[in-house]
Design a protein around this nucleic acid. Structure first.
Lengths: 247, 247
DNA sequence: CCACTGCTTCGGCGCCAGCCGAAGTGTCCG
DNA sequence: CGGACACTTCGGCTGGCGCCGAAGCAGTGG
């Protein structure tokens, strides 16, 4: 009778994500690193053959990409937009009257700090965002965020660089509603650059086989000082590596 | 083996939307108006009893709300966040290499102008957004939008009022990537206010039984003048108010 | 009181989507 | 070469879920 097309579009995408095995695969990839089909099978909790089928569907839909290397096939999310969509969907899980059921103590590590494709999430990321805001380095609002002049100076001094390419459609500083904390953390190009910096400086280290991040003492210190404490001196540009913020 | 909880969370939500009948129901509700169970059955293309089952699931999940009136039950999306999520999901449909297949001529009316819960979308909305931006009334960026002082003046003169309540978590001006046009339109509180104004001034009228909007001659005129034509105010070009670092 | 309408609940049916194991392809290694 | 490994394809099985029609339950109106 009416616009069925939209409904079908919606349903096919959602249906793809709506299978537990595929959802687990996507969640695993939300960690941001490329994983082999075998590893994904473990995460999904199903056999290799079944996983293979799922992966080809995800490929067809363009949600993931693959690169072949020797006898392995490495899978990735096809981009930050996909990761954002997934987190949106997660966040919408308990829009309902279901009272704010914390996700269970088993996920404590995840709630503390985790990677979200190419930026950080969890308590650590939320705290960091608030510190930066309190220091006047960024202005976070519901509709997004902007970097102040003081922020530009700070990030420059720290050697945190993000593409300023205006043509790049990707937000500089996207405010993600944190799935576990229900407060904002920093995504977008700035979020990616912050994550890269945090890994370089060993503020956080990845926990193998999980999205979880372990916050080091250096990380605690940096957070407590709102990043400023960790760079009392303007460090020479030794770190001007290719920062590679997404592509 | 690993964080299954997230995967299940993700899957249950997505699975709910992943059924064609339910997706059609949600799409219909994206029109923004409350509909009865019977009307939704028509939109979904399934029997009343089946529809009833779907609706109770959507209720349980908190995606829709219901209000009982006489022997009718009126259903609504439970909030703008749900609508945003649905459009996000729609937009992600063709992230893949599938070439930008236009949604088919049958949906021409929808592509032209439609309602998106409480704001407008489609070519009309996109054009309007660009007009407003060109006139210096709003600044639209990937990470959101802001209303300039000139914009505040214009909207005030037009009698367009939006809640300025800062405590309100809802974005003032959210940039939605238009699903059909793949350009930005204006959502958030400003988007809602613009839609209300457009309806009041009969720039657009709802097409019954559809999300589609018909653009009237008054609407064309208003658009051509960037809204200003209908309220000839002398506006100082006080742009560049907003600090935008990524410039 | 009864007839009509809108909606939900129930029982039963049928299909499809996901699952697995076995066999097939391609790659690396000794 | 032959064997180990990573992954895909194929065939067959099964359970769940979406579907419907019939019956039950309000609310409305004569």
């Amino acid at each position: 009778m009416t616009h069925f097309a939209s409904g079908i579009t919606l349903a096919t995408t959602a249906n793809l994500i709506g299978d537990v095995a595929r959802a687990n695969i996507l969640c695993a990839l939300t960690g941001g690193r490329a994983l082999t089909a075998g590893e994904l099978a473990l995460h999904a909790g199903v056999s290799a053959s079944t996983t293979s089928g799922h992966l080809s569907k995800l490929l067809d839909a363009g949600l993931v990409t693959v690169v072949k290397q020797g006898r392995h096939r490495y899978f990735r999310l096809s981009g930050p937009r996909v990761a954002d969509m997934l987190e949106t969907l997660m966040g919408a899980a308990d829009l309902g009257p279901t009272r704010h059921r914390p996700v269970g103590p088993r996920d404590e590590a995840l709630r503390r700090a985790r990677s979200c494709y190419d930026h950080m999430a969890g308590r650590f990321a939320v705290d960091l965002a608030e510190r930066l805001q309190a220091g006047g380095f960024v202005v976070l609002s519901d509709e997004g965020g902007t970097v102040t002049e003081a922020g530009s100076a700070l990030f420059g001094a720290l050697g945190i660089e993000f593409q300023t390419d205006k043509a790049n459609r990707r937000p500089l500083c996207r405010c993600c509603l944190d799935w576990s904390e229900r407060r904002f953390h920093i995504g977008g190009r700035l979020g990616a650059a912050l994550f890269a910096h945090a890994e370089r400086e060993k503020w956080v280290v990845r926990v193998s086989g999980s999205r979880a991040l372990r916050v080091t003492r250096a990380g605690e210190t940096a957070l407590a000082g709102g990043l400023v404490g960790s760079a009392p001196v303007a460090l020479p540009q030794t770190r001007r590596r290719n920062v590679r913020v997404s592509a």
